[in-house]
């Protein structure tokens, strides 16, 4: 019999680290702002040709909302959590690199698709929106990969 029985697992419930909270924030914000953008722009596509659809301003709003939402949300969550786990450690950095690698792979694949669109000389609308979509999918997928690494098994 073990002379030192292991303590109960009751102390395993801990709040998320600062980095994990920010990853959740990003994983929610990016799809929300991207869907809001496409919710505004796609209906316009049914009303007029792609070359006449105004998309740059809504896209800038979506990008701006993501950036501002990430910064403000990160501050609010840090204040609300009020814990001592604000610092990131080596595991956070490894998980960040893991997620970024996945996001970059998707973005690289998408960049090839956008290059093909440019070669076909399609309207700017399709090139700009394909880039935006690929960026959103890559960022979201990368964040989901990070969350899976935080919640599940991650061996670098």
């Amino acid at each position: 019999m073990d002379r030192h029985p292991a303590p109960e697992a009751g102390d395993d419930r801990v709040p998320m680290t600062f980095e994990e909270r920010n990853t959740w924030l990003y994983a929610i914000l990016v799809p929300v702002t991207s869907l809001a953008y496409f919710g505004v722009v796609v209906p316009r596509l049914f009303e007029r040709p792609a070359s006449e659809v105004s998309w740059a301003v809504p896209m800038l709003w979506a990008v701006g909302a993501t950036v501002v939402g990430t910064v403000v949300g990160s501050i609010v969550l840090a204040v609300a959590a009020r814990d001592a786990e604000a610092a990131s450690d080596v595991r956070d950095k490894e998980i960040e690199r893991h997620g970024d690698r996945i996001a970059q792979a998707i973005t690289a694949f998408g960049a090839a698709a956008v290059l093909a669109l440019a070669m076909l000389e399609v309207d700017h609308f399709w090139i700009g929106n394909a880039l935006f979509l690929i960026g959103a999918v890559g960022a979201t997928w990368g964040s989901v990969a990070k969350i899976r690494a935080y919640r599940g098994t991650f061996h670098g």
Binding site: V14, E20, E85, D89, V90, R91, F154
Partner: peptide, 10 residues
């Protein structure tokens, strides 16, 4: 060891 508690748990 200079890490977060969550890393120790993992």
């Amino acid at each position: 060891i200079g890490v977060t508690r969550q890393t120790v748990i993992a």
